[in-house]
Write a protein that binds this DNA or RNA. Sequence first.
DNA 1: TTGTACGCGTTATCAG
DNA 2: CTGATAACGCGTACAA
Lengths: 331, 331
Amino acid sequence: MTSIRDIAKLAGASVTTVSRVINNSGYVSAATRARVEQAIAALAFTPNANARRMRSGNSLMVGVVLPALDVPFFGILAHVIEQELFRRGLQALICCTNESPDQEARYISMLLSQQVDGVLAASVLEDSTQYQRLVDAGIPIVAIDRALPGLAAVSVAADHLTGGRMMAEHLLGLGHRRFAVIGAPQHSPPVQARVQGATERLAEAGLAAQVVLGSAHDFDACRELALGILGSSVDHRPTAVIGTTDIAAIGAIHAAIGLGLVVPDDVSVIGFDDLPEARYVLPALTTVAQPFRQIGVQAVAQLAARIAGDVVELAALPLRLVVRDTTAPPR
Amino acid sequence: MTSIRDIAKLAGASVTTVSRVINNSGYVSAATRARVEQAIAALAFTPNANARRMRSGNSLMVGVVLPALDVPFFGILAHVIEQELFRRGLQALICCTNESPDQEARYISMLLSQQVDGVLAASVLEDSTQYQRLVDAGIPIVAIDRALPGLAAVSVAADHLTGGRMMAEHLLGLGHRRFAVIGAPQHSPPVQARVQGATERLAEAGLAAQVVLGSAHDFDACRELALGILGSSVDHRPTAVIGTTDIAAIGAIHAAIGLGLVVPDDVSVIGFDDLPEARYVLPALTTVAQPFRQIGVQAVAQLAARIAGDVVELAALPLRLVVRDTTAPPR
DNA sequence: TTGTACGCGTTATCAG
DNA sequence: CTGATAACGCGTACAA
């Protein structure tokens, strides 16, 4: 391993001077600087980040705890976060918990030993003991997509409750009276909030919905669920289906079409997220868009501020109804 | 920062003993071990990974260079890789190049200074100078999804050329004679290989295809391209479209339906990848499946072996035609 | 079995 | 402007 000392020797300077050149700190004469830079190039020297961290105390690394990367929503979120962090000179340590509390706990131990400067977390844990360890170590945390239960951390997330209400609202406005809410994964707090928002809004209209939730982030599971509900006789069959995610809604559309129903004439379907996938189905999915890119950008901005010891205002994260071709008045 | 020394003091033992307890190395009496473990728990001590790396020389970190995470294929790949690495006690440093050579070069400098133990790379670079820096530093590299130009690294990737041939083959077998190849991104070597495979196979049948490639990983771009091609008069319009990815194929389906054509009766469409998205479209997409989970697993296995100084056989990565509802004989 | 002392590559401090 | 030196936290000869 070629070190700063080798450079110093080759350039005929001291290690201090070399360090100064590398970090643009302190005074270095142009001539010395040139010699040092030449030596650095000659030996293809790269400063050792570990030693640097050891000395300086801040690691320039940030933990990013997410349930998964192979679920489109989190893939997009992770992408935005990674890019934003890199732009600021921070390295993302992406941790996929796979929805396993156990694995999440192990990741937190790892982040602790990595001495990360901060953590961004979409947690599946139900109590705060794990994240409390980070708090105790003085590591700033920003919750993302959902709050961290039992912890007073900022949360950068869309208002899923309102989102749920918006879905119900749109369908009520079209005149629907018989509803189903279909979705997954059941244990996800954002999904639960959407369900609650939707049922609340329906209750205000004096209506109730059949609610069926599955456990996986899964198209097939949701299709099965929808098949069960849409298979009932015409008089009992819902005329409107609220999917808790776009993928769930797409599953419902497939179920409907599989049963020989026409979307949206026989049954309207609405989703949530506005993923690219919403436009792949035919008919294209009506959905409530959440600003996931903004969520990523804001989360990183919040965390960076906290790391720097600042506090910045949290910008609004507006939801938006995107009407496409899967919703219409009941016939 | 509480260190190994604090533990030693509290437990009334030496730092060596504490280190032994932590790493299960050397002899420690049961009583001493208990005292040390108690102290560790009492102070919520976590070993400092940076100091450990400094001493031991290996970082237990692996660079994962990918074009993006918000493209389904790479999101899934990244997920598998991250999980496999974590399972082996390795930390993934995911680097999204965003298809920018500049950014990729900066990431490589970063990986070098992080002293990563190995690198997994799906590169967009066209020459080897950047990766040569890693090679010179003695860092094992495994190419993934595509070769690293000018470098003698193992490559864990599907056979995209054969994949292209398989797409053409299937459509030829159905009796098609007028073809278009539509796809993106143009600069992606795997995409180029698929195009080449398809056109080769068609040439063997004495046929040629119209080939149009766009620059973005983008549904809309591909839809536009397809619109141009499928908008021609019935006599010239291709009866079969080969999409270089599932997303490109889905774009083509939308174009066809937008033009009032029936898929597959008026035009057959085939894709490549077999992403979950292939099943979201209606009709569901016929495609050539590449084993992306296996690719991730194999790539990590290869890299881990190289890091350990071993060499392991590379298992086959078979492609598989998945016939769904978008291909039929021409009418 | 246990303890002491050194060095990994940097940067910060302080003296020239 | 430049240089010597002391940390940072850990692992490991080597000594006891």
